[in-house]
């Protein structure tokens, strides 16, 4: 084979040759730009599509903001001392159409493993572990907004004539987030409930008579989705 018989070098206008990496770099940037246009078009189509609301770790914002920033690394789940966070990742997630939610963290079973908001730690470990802005420090624990507790008055003991204060005792903000009415029945104050799920864990009925409606696109507690 003769030296120089296979040439991939194109003469530049000034007669010199571009080294492969420089030419490749510029070609790469051009290709990247073309792809970006196509991707932006697809993104415009996908934008605003319905996402499944899940009970996200404390420090998460709106579902869509969380899904945008989360890189699905699982560091929050690994850091959780309560083992409350799991990484969503079964076939059911994909087959159920929750493509965007794949490999994201959620408090999957607050009945068994609720989020305690880690009062023993200065900073919440999940928030500290998150490398992106998917989880940010809410400032104070009572500023956390994961969701809102919803009572099932059909099964709740207190609504059926039996005195029970299990949820009130478990609630980190008793009296504000969870208060009693004049007949000693629990009432959730949506503007104060952080949505941690400790009440679900404590509930004494066979099936918990309280659940958390995860935060969707609300900007603030008690607001409309």
């Amino acid at each position: 084979m003769q030296r120089g018989d296979v040439s991939d070098r194109t003469p530049l206008r000034d007669g010199t040759m571009a080294v492969g990496s420089r030419r490749g770099f510029v070609a790469g940037l051009v290709a990247l730009g073309c792809g970006a246009g196509a991707g932006a078009g697809l993104g415009a189509v996908a934008r605003g599509s319905e996402v499944t609301a899940r009970l996200r770790p404390p420090g998460a914002g709106r579902q869509s903001d969380f899904l945008a920033a989360c890189i699905r690394c699982g560091q929050c789940s690994a850091a959780c001392p309560q083992d409350a966070l799991c990484v969503v990742g079964g076939w059911s997630v994909l087959l159920g159409g929750d493509f965007a939610g794949y490999a994201t963290p959620e408090v999957d079973d607050p009945r068994a493993r609720p989020c305690t908001l880690c009062p023993e730690h200065d900073a919440m470990p999940c928030v500290a572990a998150c490398p992106t802005d998917a989880l940010t420090d809410p400032g104070a624990r009572d500023a956390v907004y994961m969701g809102t507790a919803v009572l099932n008055t059909a099964t709740c003991f207190a609504y059926n004539g039996v005195t029970c204060r299990a949820c009130w005792h478990a609630c980190p903000y008793p009296g504000t987030a969870l208060a009693f009415d004049e007949r000693l029945r629990p009432v959730v104050a949506a503007e104060h409930c952080v949505g941690c799920g400790l009440c679900i864990h404590a509930c004494l009925t066979e099936e918990a008579s309280i659940h958390i409606a995860p935060r969707r696109e609300q900007a603030a507690r008690g607001g409309a989705a």
Partner: peptide, 23 residues
Amino acid sequence: LRFVVLGGLLGFALVGRWPVFQI
């Protein structure tokens, strides 16, 4: 093609607001 794919993901991330490749 590799760079087209990369560009597509970045464009999608900016407009569609999902980090698709992380999924």
